[in-house]
Write a protein that binds this DNA or RNA. Structure first.
Lengths: 204, 204
DNA sequence: GTCCCTGATGTCAGGTACTGCCATCAGCCT
DNA sequence: AGGCTGATGGCAGTACCTGACATCAGGGAC
């Protein structure tokens, strides 16, 4: 259970460290270059200097290799909800989660995110996995909201709306020419949603 | 391209008609009885009196066999949007789509829907496919909203919110003991969403 | 009636994703 | 010195899915 000695000064490890990261980098690169279906797991593994068998020890399947920081992202969102004011409304808690989550996506990540998103959007199997991750995120947020005393129905609706806002904001954040931070865009989209729900006469 | 003679009085067709439906019924039954992963396509095909190869002529993959009426469901939603009043707000158009869509789920379908939903919810691969279908539905609705003059951002938000409401309402509709129609439940959930977005001080 | 076309199905071969099981072997601990 | 640990490799096997070709009843053309 102790952490392995990675890159000590006194000797090479038995294997090149960072196998997992090498696999992820190789997979993204290959998926971009030649498409998801045209890339075999064997190919990815060899590009990372490993075997197919080892690939499946690090990732449950061929898609999962592109979905890593999920637990961490989830932690950001949940922390945001837990840090909300005691008397905040459900949507305010979600707004807090969105604000916190933006910390996960620093500006340096933008172009990498753009690349990754392009690959995922271009391949339905990858899109499916992403949707599942987002659904899990929404479910976790709903749980956190319930833990804060929000009623069941409201918790689910608020959480799902939060994920929707995140998705729309994220798409805008990686759009060509967009320079604002994710947090800024999220605030704008959230405001749009409020306007949409509040408007009774406004169209277009 | 002409319709095949199904069940004429003058002779048996070369093959038992309704192959597609038999495959769907067999698949659902087997998925329920022994689980999705424990069921092979070969098994489904044999249960329907066909071969594995024929299964894949009717359905793109092992999951797709449970997702059939997608185009029809989509048509219901889109018709609802197209039928909305010219001066309706985006959310009102979505409300119209929801109301129309409820026509797709007559009360006789409720227990079948419950069974199908239980299987899908219990198996992540199936859940993934369902999420993809719902995302496609949202995208189609957003397109229909844009065609009605709704701005891009608002169209996407309204469409995604509509799908969220549909999902929550559907879950409630198939809940044990629920007797109201889907349309009624949808109205309630939609009202809850409005309350959530409009409330600035209301909690729990 | 004969011929040919159509279309749903079957058969077969093959590729790829994924899994179970066992072997290997550097580094660490005792 | 010896044994344990843990990441890896090798190999066999199952199941998903596809392409190519064969089969053959029904129906239309003549």
């Amino acid at each position: 259970m102790s952490a392995p000695a990675i890159g000590t000064l006194y000797g090479m490890a038995r294997w090149e460290p960072g196998a997992r990261e090498r696999l992820q980098a190789a997979a993204l690169e290959l998926y971009v270059r030649q498409g998801f279906e045209q890339t075999t797991v064997e190919e990815i593994a060899r590009a990372a200097g490993l075997t197919e068998r080892t690939f499946f020890r690090h990732f449950a399947d061929k898609r999962e290799v592109l979905f890593n920081g999920q637990e961490e992202l989830e932690r950001f969102f949940l922390d945001g909800i837990r840090a909300a004011a005691p008397d905040a409304s459900p949507l305010e808690m979600v707004a807090g989660a969105l604000a916190t989550s933006a910390g996960f996506f620093a500006d340096e990540r933008r172009s990498w995110s753009r690349l990754r998103d392009a690959v995922i959007s271009a391949h339905p199997p990858l899109k499916e996995r992403e949707l599942l991750k987002m659904a899990a995120l929404a479910a976790a947020m709903a749980g956190a909201l319930r833990a804060r005393g929000v009623a069941d129905r409201a918790a689910v609706l608020a959480a799902e709306s939060g994920v929707t806002v995140f998705g729309v904001a994220f798409t805008q954040w990686i759009a060509e020419g967009e320079t604002r931070s994710l947090a800024e865009v999220e605030r704008e989209v959230l405001a749009d949603l409020g306007e949409l729900a509040g408007a009774r006469a406004a169209k277009r």
